[in-house]
């Protein structure tokens, strides 16, 4: 077999194939439910109700979507330039650390929130800068270095929480002291359990979208991603563009950790992120790297996770079904997107 480009893909092809990928994922979900001895349709229903069935469920889904929007944006921005930032998990924790460092009494109102957000972004950006400079200067593959940094960062967080950042009132639990009230993100609507981090995530998506579509940097990022050689030939400072992309990407990922600490948890613990950095890759790919699409896919992915938790308690299907479905959706989707542009021919 070989692949042949499709000259002008029809609308049916461009929309039908991604839709088919989602349907196929649903099929896998039903298969897994059967395997677990549950009623497939009931399982799908319970996931949907668990995610969206009540005001409480919807708020939980939106809360869960907040860090995923940030990490999804971080990945989307980087992947657009073919910068393979798999280190959003580490950058997230960098942001979370800064939220604690600056939010436990060093700074007061009104400076603590803006300053700690900015510092968090700088920390996340700095963390990605290393791998990117290694890539541009020495040609070291950033996939491996950013992955390895995730492990180093988690151990560093563990060290902080058992050492210099340990909460003396924590009853031996490795967690940081609580943030002061001024350092906490308020709720968007009083009485509703949804914090300003969600609104900031939406704003961040819009800002990234404006950068990508309305600025020179956005144009350069796309050009470098499509063809670095051509971009270099056209006189574009390719390495400088990659560094700027990295700063943006690392900063966005750090905001995920910052908003989880300042908005949701109020302290840092080593289970702050159940892999938000990695799930961000799925969020970004499902959104076809579109910043506004990231909002939609992050809420979708968050819904699957929240819904699966609820379903698992009721139907007894292991909650890991959510992770399996996300990985399946990712693989189906990249294949579907390819097939919108090419067709398989014999020979």
């Amino acid at each position: 077999m070989r692949l042949e480009p499709v000259a002008n893909p029809s609308a049916a092809r461009r929309l039908g194939l991604p839709a088919l990928a989602l349907v196929a994922t649903l099929g896998v979900a039903m298969g897994l439910a059967l395997l677990a001895g549950a009623n497939p349709l009931a399982v799908l229903g319970q996931i949907a109700t668990g995610a969206l069935g009540s005001k409480l469920a919807i708020l939980e889904t939106l809360n869960r979507a907040t860090p995923l929007i940030f990490t999804g944006l971080a990945v989307a921005v980087a992947f657009r330039a073919k910068l393979w930032n798999i280190g959003a998990e580490a950058q997230l924790y960098a942001g979370a650390i800064l939220a604690v460092v600056l939010g436990t009494g060093v700074l007061g109102s009104p400076w603590v929130l803006p300053v700690s957000a900015l510092a968090a972004m700088l920390a996340g950006a700095a963390l990605l800068l290393g791998p990117v400079l290694l890539k541009t200067r020495l040609g070291v593959d950033e996939v491996v270095t950013t992955l390895l940094l995730n492990f180093i960062m988690l151990l560093f967080v563990s060290y902080l929480l058992e050492g210099p950042m340990k909460d003396p009132m924590g009853m031996g639990w490795p967690k940081s002291p609580a943030l002061i009230p001024e350092a906490r993100l308020p709720r968007i609507v009083e009485g509703l359990r949804l914090h300003w981090g969600f609104a900031l995530a939406i704003i961040a998506a819009v800002v990234v979208w404006v950068i990508q579509t309305r600025t020179t940097l956005g144009f350069e990022i796309r050009a470098v991603g499509q063809n670095p050689e051509a971009a270099r030939f056209a006189g574009m400072p390719v390495n400088a563009v990659l560094v700027k992309t990295a700063l943006l990407s690392g900063g966005l990922a750090a905001l995920a950790g910052w908003s989880e600490v300042a908005g949701l948890k109020g302290h840092l613990s080593s289970d702050l992120s159940p892999g938000f950095g990695y799930t961000g890759i799925i969020v970004a790919m499902l959104a076809l790297l579109h910043p506004l699409g990231v909002i939609v896919t992050a809420i979708f992915v968050a819904g699957i996770f929240v819904g699966s938790d609820a379903m698992s308690r009721a139907a007894g299907v292991p909650t890991y079904i959510a992770d399996m479905l996300m990985a399946t959706a990712l693989l189906f989707m990249v294949l579907a997107i390819l097939l919108t542009r090419v067709r398989v021919v014999r020979g």
Binding site: M1, L3, L32, W84, I86, V143, Y278, I281, I282, M285, P318, Y320, I321, D323, M324, M326, A327, T328, L330, L331, V334, L335, L338
Partner: peptide, 24 residues
């Protein structure tokens, strides 16, 4: 290989799928 999809994305997808399959 035949589809020539991004080895980065597919590889990470396979890692996520294999890991979650084991847990499931």
């Amino acid at each position: 290989v035949p589809f020539g999809l991004s080895q980065h994305v597919v590889g990470l997808g396979v890692t996520l799928l294999a890991t979650s399959s084991a847990s499931f």
